[in-house]
Design a protein around this nucleic acid. Sequence first.
DNA 1: CGAACAAGCGGAGGAGCCTCCGTTTAAAGG
DNA 2: CCTTTAAACGGAGGCTCCTCCGCTTGTTCG
Lengths: 199, 199
Amino acid sequence: MVPKEHSSQSEDRPKLRADAQRNRAKLVQVASQAFADRGADASLEEIARRAGVGIGTLYRHFPTREHLVEVVYRRELELLAGAASELLADNAPDIALDKWMHRFVSYMAAKRGMASSLKLLFTSNSALFADGTTVITAAFDQLLRAAINAGTVKDDLEASDVLYTLFAIYAIPDAPDWRERAHKIVRLIMDGLRIRPKA
Amino acid sequence: MVPKEHSSQSEDRPKLRADAQRNRAKLVQVASQAFADRGADASLEEIARRAGVGIGTLYRHFPTREHLVEVVYRRELELLAGAASELLADNAPDIALDKWMHRFVSYMAAKRGMASSLKLLFTSNSALFADGTTVITAAFDQLLRAAINAGTVKDDLEASDVLYTLFAIYAIPDAPDWRERAHKIVRLIMDGLRIRPKA
DNA sequence: CGAACAAGCGGAGGAGCCTCCGTTTAAAGG
DNA sequence: CCTTTAAACGGAGGCTCCTCCGCTTGTTCG
């Protein structure tokens, strides 16, 4: 009889009123943009303003800044993970893989400037980090397997191996050419993965 | 010709005006109290008020909250370390050692509630932590050696060994009887150190 | 359809953050 | 002592945070 108390907000929520749902979604969307633009201490009042709701509404949905940051973070990871299926539907598997990795770079780019607050969040909620890793690994695995099955990339690597390599972009110092370098690394990895036609 | 830039504020400062020195010292003293009472996000305006200076003065001396926290932290560690010599001057070495450890507990008690901000400070300024450890270890070493030389405690332990044991009080959960438990641990350690007259 | 009643909304208000700049004053030189 | 002047002061002002509570509106039920 252990009480179920998993600090995650997924299922059985008491069903929000329609307007509340709209407002909440709009807030998350605006906040997502704001955090990307201005870092994790973007003004909450401005987020509420831009979302066209009162500040009280924001605080009712997200009692602390951390709540909001966490929800935004989770949503974006899910979007990123979800993109894997979409890309696979519209592209050859190796192309999907390539595009996804570049999208991953864009995601990371938006998260720079929030690094320290995220780190703080992770230490107070380690499930958050673990969940994130799981979701991303699963998505990437899907892409990699598809490409392997199509015979366009090598089959001797695990998703996690490649992902760790991709994480190298964490280590790129913060300079104006950050994005460029990161995309170069993706190209490098992709070239390494591809099976080339014999010369 | 390496530039001397040790981020520590000890020597060659450009010499503050007398009033500035007074204000600065008063601010640090008041802040020390405020942080102990209310944690690391005590109101800076109130600290300035209590110190009898304008908020502008506080910000001139300590451009960010972190600056102030760091200076307070350093000062308190130095006070604690300095207490070692004083205690040795007035007490038998083993008594001095005992008293100092109890004082250490009081120090830690004041620092509870600031744990997370200090941790954050340490990650952005790792020298701070290293310096602190050095200062405290040196002070403790002085006490321990004196007691060993006096033949009242065992001589088979290093200062750092005992200190690490003392750090056990870090791990005591946050409950009303925290202090009590911590002092009990000190008693335990002290009993362990003492050479007892044969029964 | 129309009440009625939560659920949800929003913004005023009190407190804190930090900057900026006109005013005061310690200290150096005559 | 008295000037002079740069260092130091202080608090108003603009902005953000977050709470509280009277008002609005989606939803349900007769």
